[in-house]
Simulated assay, not measured.
Amino acid sequence: MSGPTEPKRLTRQRDAERTRAAILTAARTLFSTRGYAHTGVREVAELAGVNSALVGRYFGSKLGLFRATLEVLDITPMFQLERHRFGVAMVAAFFDSPDAPGPLAMMLLSAADPEAHAASVEFLQKKVLTPLARWLGPPDGEGRAAKLSILWNGFLTSWKLLPLPALTGARLASTRRWLEAQTQAIVDEGEA
């Protein structure tokens, strides 16, 4: 039977998907600018334009919502690219969305809350470091993944979170080329 209830179900499903997406977008914005400890469920709901009860309905808790925002961490699509272009492609990903609320900011600002901080460390390991180390392979894939994380986190922190005045204009373009080369050099350590 596909009568009048079918369109209603589809409409409700689309509304639920839109509501969930709005909540996630609002949460990413607040977690990446104010931090986990200084962001409340009501504030997320208000920014998303929804009732705060929906946050609990979709995500269970504030920590569940935080974990869901971290799900954007997925480096694996980068592994489909040609290995010799990884540095250029990875750095391009940083520059393609310079104003988007970032997972790095969310993770760094989560340090004030032990549960959120633990979730950040877990997700960084599970979604970035472990798959990256596996892709890099021997020798010392784990060590090289750690080097890349240090390099990228240092750059992103100095560019966006604790901005260095020198990272603008021509200097930023020069730094981008340097970051591409350093990233690629760490990737290529396994090729020698």
Rank of each mutant, 00 (worst) to 15 (best):
S2W: 09
G3T: 06
P4F: 10
P7K: 00
T11M: 12
Q13D: 03
R14E: 09
T19P: 08
A22N: 08
T25P: 05
A27M: 09
A27T: 07
L30Y: 06
L30R: 03
L30T: 04
F31A: 03
T33K: 08
T33Q: 13
T39L: 05
V41L: 10
V41P: 03
R42C: 10
E43R: 12
V44N: 06
E46T: 15
E46K: 10
E46I: 09
G49T: 11
G49R: 08
G49P: 11
S52P: 15
A53R: 15
L54C: 02
Y58M: 07
Y58L: 08
G60V: 10
S61G: 07
K62Q: 12
G64L: 05
G64V: 01
F66K: 06
T69P: 08
T69A: 04
L70A: 12
L70G: 13
L70M: 04
E71L: 00
V72R: 14
L73Q: 06
L73F: 00
D74S: 08
D74R: 06
M78G: 12
M78Y: 10
L81E: 15
L81M: 14
E82I: 07
R83Q: 07
H84L: 15
G87C: 05
G87K: 04
A89N: 13
A89W: 10
A89T: 12
A92V: 03
D96T: 15
P98V: 12
P98G: 08
D99G: 09
A100P: 11
P101E: 02
L104P: 01
A105C: 04
L108S: 02
L108I: 03
S110C: 03
A111R: 14
D113V: 04
P114K: 13
P114H: 11
P114L: 14
E115Q: 14
A116R: 06
E122M: 03
F123G: 12
K127R: 14
A133Q: 13
R134Q: 09
R134T: 12
W135F: 06
G137E: 08
P139F: 00
R144I: 01
A145D: 09
A145H: 11
K147L: 12
S149I: 00
L151S: 03
G154M: 05
K160Y: 12
A166M: 13
A166Q: 14
L167Q: 07
G169Q: 10
L172G: 00
L172I: 05
R176M: 10
R176N: 07
R176Y: 07
W178V: 15
E180D: 04
A185G: 04
D188M: 05
E189C: 01
E189H: 11
A192K: 15
